[in-house]
Design a protein around this nucleic acid. Structure first.
Length: 365
DNA sequence: AACGCGGGGTC
DNA sequence: GACCCAGCGTT
């Protein structure tokens, strides 16, 4: 039997009362909503451009990290047409530091499609939204609910955690996504009463009250509905799959200066890790350290990505060594401008360290 | 279905 | 310093 909201309802007599749950959520949200630059006041709809931009930025990260980026983007590009017409390198430069750079490439592509093929207006159909680059199930549902106030089942990480606790769901979430989705569907499918405010309320609750660690159940507006709380197991939910340890990778970064004291940088290829971003040139990143010990003066840079730790040797090469840049797109940069050109964190960190060592004479160049 | 993809917040 | 978190596209 397919697991749908209807089946779930039929199967479980303990399922909570949808009307009173939503009323509790909406009442709480009305008084406690976070005031965020992309949000409208309760009952109003935000500009779809702002809503979409914020949702793309918020994927895989948190509100606090996004706010300055959102303000900068909307200042530079007040409409989606402005963003569509911006050079890609400008968009990547402004995105630098936010991570997951494919999001920025898809954001730009999506802006161009909306600007040119949709006359600057986001489609108001979930299926149409999901066809656009960078818009998946979550973002499509969020835009439908929040910008258009149409019924939608919004499921992001915050809402997932809240609902897993409310329903006392004890299976590992990764292996039971459909069941968890059915909880959300049970509470919001087809609902026309403030769908956007309800979704944002659950997200704010997840961010402020129903936090991953030490949830503040005493302040929770829906504690009366919460099965995990009634069993005092809220701290143990959601059940995670066991985590894997991160491997270590090794590589070399080449710091090459010309006679003007400028540093050689590259534009990275458009796909893969840190794709389309500016970076310090270097070797491939391998599973074992390269054997350059004793051959060159070097210093070490450590950085952790999602899936591996990276240990880099920084070495100084002379301008004639720029043959290592064959087939690559490179350019020169004044070292003191490195903070302004939009570098991924690993390269920003590397150049900072390079300059510190150089100017303290701890490293002979 | 599994994997690749960053960086910041929290304890 | 270790651990925690989290959507979309690709394969």
């Amino acid at each position: 039997m397919a697991l749908t909201a209807e089946n779930l309802k039929a199967n479980d007599p303990d399922l909570i009362n949808v009307e009173s749950f939503r009323r509790a959520m909406l009442n709480w949200y009305k008084e406690n909503a976070r005031r965020l630059p992309w949000r409208a006041v309760f009952g109003d709809k935000p500009d779809p451009y702002h809503e979409w931009l914020s949702e793309i930025m918020l994927q895989q990260t948190v509100v606090k990290a996004v706010i300055p980026y959102f303000l900068k983007f909307t200042e530079l590009w007040p409409t989606i047409h402005d963003l569509a017409n911006a050079p890609q390198e400008d968009v990547m430069r402004e995105w630098a530091g936010l991570g997951y750079y494919a999001r920025a490439r898809n954001l730009h592509k999506c802006a161009q499609m909306i600007s040119k093929e949709y006359q600057g207006k986001f489609p108001e159909e979930e299926a149409e939204l999901k066809k656009l680059p960078g818009i998946g199930p979550y973002t499509a549902a969020a835009i439908m609910g929040i910008s258009f106030e149409k019924p939608s089942v919004v499921m992001d990480g915050n809402i997932e955690r809240v609902l897993v606790r409310v329903f006392g769901h004890k299976k590992p979430v990764r292996e039971s996504k459909k069941e968890v989705y059915a909880y959300a569907a049970h509470l919001s499918e087809g609902r026309t009463d403030y769908p956007g405010e309800y979704a944002q309320g659950l997200m704010d609750l997840g961010a402020m009250i129903c936090t991953p660690i030490s949830p503040k159940c005493g302040m929770c507006p829906i504690r009366a509905f919460c099965k995990a709380r009634s069993e005092n197991i809220q701290e143990t939910l959601p059940v995670k799959a066991k985590k894997i340890s991160r491997p270590v990778k090794y590589g070399t970064l080449y710091f090459i200066e010309n006679s003007k004291g400028e540093l050689l940088l590259e534009k990275r290829p458009g796909t893969g890790l840190l794709g389309s971003m500016v970076g310090v040139p270097g070797s491939e990143w391998m599973d074992k350290p390269a054997d350059i010990a004793g051959k060159l003066e070097k210093f070490q840079i450590n950085h952790t990505f999602t899936h591996f730790h990276l240990i880099l040797d920084g070495v100084s090469l002379s301008e004639k060594d720029k043959s290592v840049m064959a087939d690559k797109e490179y350019f020169w940069m004044r070292p003191d401008t490195y903070g302004k050109i939009g570098l991924p964190t690993v390269f920003k960190k590397s150049i900072k360290l390079y300059l510190q060592l150089k100017y303290k004479d701890k490293w002979i160049l």
